[in-house]
Write a protein that binds this DNA or RNA. Structure first.
Length: 356
DNA sequence: CCAATTTGACCGAT
DNA sequence: ATCGGTCAAATTGG
């Protein structure tokens, strides 16, 4: 629905294009994370085009294009005609609260959360990628052979689940049709914060741009807030966002920001390192404190594994000491989890599952 | 020694 | 009874 063939272009083509754009965007986002902090001090009137700014501009163009292609602008929407980009909202679910303390000695395990607790009001976001690497650090916790598929499915959770209670998960499986690609489905949202997160940089970088940048049509993060200007979709929907806090992090915007979505939970896939920018903007307009959710591994976790067998390596990737150990959970206060007034955060307890 | 992965067991849903 | 998802002991790697 999101992508309809406007005019003569078949929906699949559009979907494919959007899919590519998504990838491009991801790449940009990631790249931005590596940019050196620009001369923030001198945000003088005329500065040489800083890489970050260029990226911002590029990004905004991208978003614009995506919005256009997406018609309704619901980029987070679904497109499965081409089998590539899907976002499904699952229905709410009966209570699922369990926390078995189980000291687990011996092999006696008691009821673990098993089964498809799919219906947690969670949404999933499926996509196809050539690599399992997506900028996040995952820890594999299971693998299963699936009935119809020749390839097993691997289950990952965010490395920071214990650390920070990050509830992001993903499932990967080699694409049947195209074994060189992976089918990756994301569930939940990253609420973790990583030191190497790219957001701060992004914010810093854009800080200058916001004020006097020659670009309009740019989404930039200023230290004081987020300023969104002239995004076709935003314009269309009349969303204007200006925000607030000195965000050092933006956390997921679960909520459906008011208007459109309605009850279903709209969520920014973790597949996208960030939530859709425009969604972010919208959300941000409603929430006051924003936190960044994306965590990125600054140092590429090595490898791509994959070679022949794939499926296994992936995730957490080696790392051993690297990004893995990051006990940044000092003051929860600074974590800025936003669980705001937004509606649908159905399982908050999933984010703060336990207490030590 | 610690942390990540492997792998079979367990469990809820179908 | 079967399937898919998760847990956690055992194993492996750094």
């Amino acid at each position: 629905m999101a992508f309809s063939s406007e005019g003569g272009v078949p929906a699949e083509r559009v979907a494919a294009a959007v899919n590519d754009l998504v990838e491009v965007r991801d790449g940009l986002v990631r790249l931005r994370g590596f940019l050196p902090p620009p001369p923030q001090a001198e945000q003088s009137s005329s500065r040489p085009p800083c890489a970050a700014e260029l990226m911002d501009a590029t990004m905004s163009k991208l978003m614009s294009a995506m919005a256009t292609l997406g018609g309704s602008g619901d980029i987070a929407g679904e497109v499965d005609a081409a089998g590539r980009w899907t976002s499904v909202a699952e229905s709410a679910d009966p209570m699922v609260v369990r926390r078995e303390g189980e000291s687990s000695a011996g092999r006696t395990r008691r009821r673990r959360g098993g089964g498809s607790r799919s219906g947690r009001g969670r949404s999933s976001n499926k996509r196809v990628a050539a690599t399992l690497e997506d900028g996040h650090v995952w820890r594999k916790y299971g693998q299963k052979d699936i009935q119809n598929s020749p390839y097993p499915r691997s289950y990952y959770r965010c490395t920071h689940k214990l650390d920070q209670g990050c509830g992001a998960r993903r499932q990967t499986q080699r694409c049947e049709a195209d074994p060189s690609n992976y089918d990756i489905t994301y569930y939940g949202e990253h609420t973790c914060r990583d030191p190497s997160t790219i957001i701060p940089t992004a914010i810093a970088n854009a800080a200058g741009a916001a004020s006097d940048g020659p670009n309009n049509n740019i989404i930039s993060f200023a230290t004081g807030g987020v300023v969104v200007a002239n995004s076709s979709r935003l314009a269309r929907e009349g969303t204007t966002a200006t925000t607030t806090s000195a965000a050092t992090q933006l956390s997921s915007s679960w909520g459906t920001s008011g208007g459109g979505g309605g009850g279903d939970d709209v969520f920014s896939s973790s597949g996208e390192r960030f939530m859709q920018w425009d969604e972010l903007a919208a959300a941000v307009g409603h929430v006051s404190s924003v936190g960044v959710t994306s965590s990125t591994v600054g140092s590429a976790p090595a490898a791509e594994n994959d070679g022949g067998n794939g499926d296994t390596a992936a995730g957490g990737g080696g790392d051993g000491g690297g990004a893995g150990s990051f006990p940044s959970s000092p003051s929860a206060g600074s974590l800025g989890f936003v669980v705001g007034p937004l509606g649908s955060i159905e399982d908050v307890d999933d984010f703060f599952p336990f207490d030590p």
